[in-house]
C-alpha cells in the first residue's frame, strides 16, 4: 500500500508510523510517498534520524552502528536524508537519541538542507529575470500576453472563443517564471519550520 504524506515534524511522523504498525502496516520504503506491507499488528518503535552521506561506505558504517545497537534500518537511502529505524530487539533502549541536543540536531540538519535547496533556486530565478523576456509589465497589463492578431478588436462569441483558447497559453507565457520565486518561498518556509522545531526540541 502506498500513502502520501508530508511531515516537517519528525515526532509527529514517528507517531503516525507507529500507529500504522499497530494497524498491521509495516514501512518498507520511503520516497516521495510511503510504502507499507501487511504485517502482524505490533507495538513497534519507529524512530527517525536525518542524515545524508558522501559515500556508500559512510552510509553503511552508519547503518551498521544502529544495527549493532538493536535498531534495524528499514527505509532511507544514502541521499534521502530521513532514515527510518525499527526497534528489533527488546534489549535496546527506547530511543535512538540519549540526550536532547542530539535529538534536536536532526532538525538543524533538515533546516540546512531546505535552506540550501532554496538558495540553489536563486541563480535560476535571477537568470530568468535578467535574460529571458520576462514581461514584468504584463503583470499590470495582461493583454500583452495575447498574441492573436486583432484579438481585442473582435466581439461577441468569436472573441470569447479566441480569448478562452489562448488564455492557458497566455498564463504559461506570462507567469510560469513565478514558479521559481514561489518554490524559493516554499522552501524557505520549510527551513524556518525545521529551525523552529530545532529550537522547540532544544527547549
Amino acid at each position: 500500500m502506498k500513502k502520501f504524506r508530508f511531515y516537517l515534524d519528525f515526532e509527529k511522523e514517528e507517531i503516525w508510523l507507529n500507529e500504522m504498525a499497530r494497524q498491521g502496516w509495516g514501512l518498507t520504503r520511503k520516497s516521495l510517498w510511503y510504502e507499507f506491507r501487511k504485517v502482524v499488528p505490533n507495538d513497534a518503535t519507529i524512530k527517525i534520524d536525518y542524515h545524508t552521506f558522501k559515500t556508500k561506505n559512510d552510509f553503511e558504517d552508519y547503518c551498521t552502528l544502529f544495527e549493532d545497537s538493536g535498531w534495524e534500518h528499514i527505509a532511507g537511502t544514502k541521499t534521502s536524508g530521513t532514515q527510518y529505524f525499527y526497534k528489533s530487539s527488546s534489549s535496546s533502549d527506547g530511543d535512538i537519541f540519549s540526550d536532547i541536543p542530539s535529538k534536536a540536531a536532526r532538525y538543524k540538519r533538515l533546516s540546512k538542507v531546505w535552506l540550501s535547496i532554496a538558495i540553489s533556486y536563486f541563480p535560476i530565478s535571477v537568470a530568468l529575470v535578467s535574460t529571458n523576456p520576462i514581461n514584468i509589465s504584463a503583470l499590470v497589463n495582461p493583454k500583452l500576453l495575447y498574441y492573436t492578431p486583432g484579438l481585442w478588436d473582435k466581439t461577441g462569441s468569436y472573441f470569447l472563443r479566441a480569448f478562452l483558447i489562448e488564455t492557458p497559453f497566455a498564463i504559461m507565457r506570462g507567469f510560469t517564471w513565478l514558479l521559481f520565486p514561489a518554490l524559493i518561498i516554499l522552501y524557505l518556509i520549510f527551513a524556518v519550520k525545521a529551525e523552529k522545531n530545532y529550537r522547540k526540541t532544544n527547549g
Binding site: L65, D68, S69, I96, S98, S102, K103
Partner: peptide, 28 residues
C-alpha cells in the same frame, strides 16, 4: 574502536551511568 565498541566502553567506564544511543553517538 568502532562505534558500537565506543558505546560499550563508555557504559563500562561510567559504571553504567552513561548509556549513549546510536543517533547521539553518531552525531558526537
Amino acid at each position: 574502536a568502532h562505534g558500537y565498541v565506543i558505546m560499550q566502553k563508555v557504559e563500562d567506564l561510567s559504571d553504567g551511568e552513561v548509556r549513549m544511543a546510536a543517533g547521539t553517538l553518531y552525531g558526537a
